[in-house]
Design a protein around this nucleic acid. Structure first.
Length: 787
DNA sequence: AGCACGCCGACT
DNA sequence: GTCGGCGTGCTC
């Protein structure tokens, strides 16, 4: 051991700033012990004392003298710097990527680190109980050196033969109980017993016995041999050229699943031939499995990395991905951070899937992370979907991405739109089971083929719509559905918070028949069963499909021809159908439209496109029936005419007019707490601070006097002002979550950096002034779901 | 975020 | 007394 802290020629930094995996936006400064000096680098993972515990943190800066902000009470020292595992020195790329996420999504950097670190099994703290050992029960030979606290503790434990829980033990005592306890344990008088630890949430253990995905169904029988689109050949050459040139490129690929799969395998193999690696990211686990199976069938071994794997397997997959042998990594959003070097191709399969957005605190979007990685690592990014997001179309329009659309129009079913207005409103269940719909089912049954009914996800909030013309009352400013409150007989916009009495008449047709949405679809399963008593009816929704295994079971049922009619929600699209259906119906296409979310039309359109993909081609007798009260809606028209561009153009125009993404950056602020008035007050205060911020950024308030908000009307106009615009506050659509009241605020800005900067500054101020109340202030940059 | 610490109420 | 719950304040 050479232990020679000789005065070094150049002084080594003696202080480090460390970020910690906690919900804290600051870093903390520590002293570097002499023996560790010179070994600490930025990106080093270190163990530091923090409060009563030791935490693994990340070094983000080195100093020669304590920074000015350091506390006077003195700084603590680093414990160690992960000499046991080299793994914990982050590469500069990992440090930078985690920092990028922290800044982009206004998350504490310390919490973003775990994204790039190997998954670790978090040991559940067991319930510990302390009791006397045999030695402790016997009168101790000597009590010398025992402090008063130790003696008291000993006496207390003697009264409790079964031991005392840690929590109660530490309660009555002043500080000093814990050191005393440790001292007693050291003397062998007390022992610690861990009781049945809090039941560890084990995630489906055995469902993943098969890590090689070859045993899983590959795709749909109906699309077994995709005819490789002729244009795709040149596309492939372009990808290959890009990979070979070691250059970044971004492509949007639109096509049916079979086409995308074909392109994916080809592009991946071309990338591998160039000695580069492939990362495939998709929204759900079933699809990741399916893609792995696809590669297996093509003779390529892929590493699966997703959150449904048991932690140990996930950890193994992480290291495997980092190793030299792994060339293709497939996973859900967490896989966007997989430690793959020599990345050549990043493929996001189903790029418009909302589950690519993390809803927990580093609220990143895996598509964005994938994009950023491709940019940083000079890889080719492909965003693939059957119906790309408006965000991606906007990127294409701005020249940031190249679009490739490979469609075979002969693959689609015959589409028929039924105008429900013709059926009046009084027929209740009869309204949704129109004669055309029943005839379609009957026909499918006769042909011994499957009939599928797709129910759009119902809104969480109660929304009104006109039974005669189908429109719903919307907010004048925000153009989203107004939420209906029966008790106060009011409607409210949960974007901007305005409320007013329920309108008496339909805003379009003046009908008096405004009523809550969705009554008809509730009982549809019952109605279908009554109408077709001999048919075998299955249901596929969040309640019947809880785990991927369930989905497979349903697929198998259909495969075996055990089902005649399947009724389901969006969950249907996750299944690997054995065959396409002769008849697919959407009994109430408008239901999804009435969700108070500016993206509702886009979601509705995607649902319809997906529903169409479930049906056989028209040439094979496939039919899609869409029932609506809004046959002129652009989503319906675009679907019926197969004119996607028209939908995108109209929807883009709507978003631009109302300044919604992708034309603005949107940030949702959530204020929550246990006391409603405090929450409301804090939310209003935040808005005031933000507006102050906005105005002061400009130098002076806009027109004096009312100064609180810009006139509502101007929200709709693409104003020349480049200031963030603030909507709200308003009670969140889900007003109470886990006994906490929630209010929300929306911040629109041209660039998300502008918005996040203002939001972070004001939140700091807000937290300073409102210490109490158990208030929480959450930030969601680019929220993907508003309802 | 996680943890300690204090206060309250239920149970025994 | 014991034990769980919850609000509050703090962490270099």
């Amino acid at each position: 051991m050479r232990d020679q802290p000789v005065q070094a020629a150049a002084p080594l930094p003696g202080y480090v700033d460390v970020v910690l995996p906690r919900r804290l936006h600051r870093s903390f400064t520590y002293v570097v012990p002499a023996e560790l000096r010179g070994r600490i680098v930025i990106g080093q993972s270190v163990l530091v004392p923090f409060g009563t515990q030791d935490l693994q943190g990340l070094v983000i800066a080195l100093h020669h003298r304590p920074p000015s902000g350091a506390p006077e009470a003195g700084l603590k020292s680093l414990r160690s710097c992960g000499e046991t595992s080299r793994d914990h020195v982050l590469t500069p790329a990992q440090v930078e990527l985690s920092r990028w996420v922290a800044e982009r999504y206004a998350a504490p950097w310390g919490q973003c680190i775990k994204l790039v670190l190997p998954p670790v099994d978090q040991p559940r703290r067991p319930h510990t109980r302390y009791l006397l050992t045999a030695q402790g029960l016997a009168e101790p030979s000597s009590r010398d050196g025992m402090g008063e606290a130790e003696l008291r503790l000993l006496a207390r434990l003697r009264r409790r033969p079964n031991g005392i829980m840690e929590s109660t033990l530490l309660r009555g005592e002043k500080s000093g109980a814990m050191p005393a306890l440790r001292a007693l344990i050291k003397r062998g008088l007390v022992e610690q017993r861990d009781e049945a630890a809090a039941p560890k949430r084990t995630r489906r253990g055995k469902a993943h016995a098969l890590t090689t995905a070859s045993a899983l169904p590959i795709g749909e029988a109906g699309e077994a041999s995709p005819p490789p689109p002729a244009e795709a050949q040149s596309w492939l050459m372009m990808i290959d050229k890009q990979v070979a040139a070691d250059g970044y490129a971004a492509l949007l690929l639109e096509g049916e699943r079979a086409t995308r799969h074909w392109c994916l395998v080809q592009a991946a193999q071309a990338t591998l031939r160039r000695g580069r690696r492939v990362l495939v990211i998709t929204g759900d686990v079933e699809n990741a499995d399916r893609l792995a199976g696809l590669f297996a069938a093509a003779g390529e071994q892929a590493t699966l990395l997703h959150s449904s794997l048991p932690v140990k397997e996930r950890e193994a997959a992480w290291y495997e991905a980092r190793g030299a042998s792994s060339t293709i990594v497939i996973g859900t959003r967490m896989a966007a951070f997989a430690p793959i070097d020599r990345l050549g191709l990043v493929w996001v399969e189903g790029e418009d899937d909302t589950s690519l957005k993390e809803e927990q605190v580093p609220r990143y979007h895996a598509r964005e992370v994938a994009h950023e990685r491709a940019r940083r690592e000079n890889a080719v990014l492909v965003l693939a979907s059957n119906h790309p997001s408006l965000e991606s179309w906007a990127a294409v329009q701005q020249g940031l991405m190249m679009a490739c659309v490979y469609r075979n129009p002969t693959q689609g079913p015959k589409i028929q739109v039924i105008d429900l207005k013709a059926y009046g409103r009084d027929s209740s269940a009869g309204t949704v089971l129109t004669p055309d719909l029943c005839e379609g089912i009957r026909d499918a049954l006769q042909r011994r083929s499957l009939a599928i009914l797709f129910l759009n996800r119902k809104g969480f909030a109660s929304v009104l719509h006109c039974a005669d013309c189908g429109v719903n009352p919307q907010c004048d400013v925000c153009s989203v559905a107004l939420t209906f409150f029966r008790r106060s007989n009011q409607v409210r916009c949960h974007y901007c918070g305005r409320s007013k009495p329920v309108p008496e008449q339909c805003p379009r047709c003046q009908s008096l028949k405004l009523e809550p949405v969705g009554a008809g679809t509730e009982r549809i399963e019952e109605a279908v069963r009554r109408m077709f008593p001999m048919a075998r009816v299955g249901r596929v929704d969040g309640e019947t499909i809880r785990r991927p295994g369930d989905a497979r079971a349903v697929s198998r049922l259909m495969d075996a021809g055990e089902l005649d009619i399947v009724i389901g929600t969006q969950m249907l699209f996750r299944l690997a159908l054995p065959a396409r259906a002769a008849f697919v119906a959407v009994p109430d296409a408008d239901a999804g439209l009435h969700v108070p979310d500016f993206r509702s039309a886009e979601r509705m359109y995607h649902g319809l496109v997906d529903a169409a993909a479930l049906a056989l081609p028209a040439a094979a007798g496939g039919r899609l029936l869409v029932q609506t009260r809004l046959p002129d809606h652009h989503a319906i028209l675009a679907l019926a005419s197969g004119n996607e561009e028209m939908f995108v153009a109209q929807e883009q125009a709507f978003r631009q007019l109302l300044q919604y993404p992708p034309w603005t950056s949107l940030i949702r602020l959530d204020v929550s707490g246990t006391a409603e008035p405090a929450v409301a007050r804090a939310a209003h205060r935040w808005v005031a601070l933000l507006r102050g911020q906005v105005f002061s950024a400009q130098g002076a308030p806009l027109s004096g006097g009312h100064g609180v908000s810009r006139p509502g009307g101007s929200a709709g106009v693409a104003g020349e002002s480049r200031q963030p615009f603030i909507l709200g506050p308003s009670p969140a659509p889900h007003a109470m979550v886990r006994n906490r009241y929630c209010w929300q605020i929306l911040v629109k800005s041209d660039a998300s950096e502008v918005g996040t900067a203002a939001v972070l500054r004001t939140r700091e101020e807000l937290e300073r002034e409102s210490r109490r109340g158990g208030l929480r202030f959450d930030i969601d940059v680019d929220p993907v779901s508003m309802a």
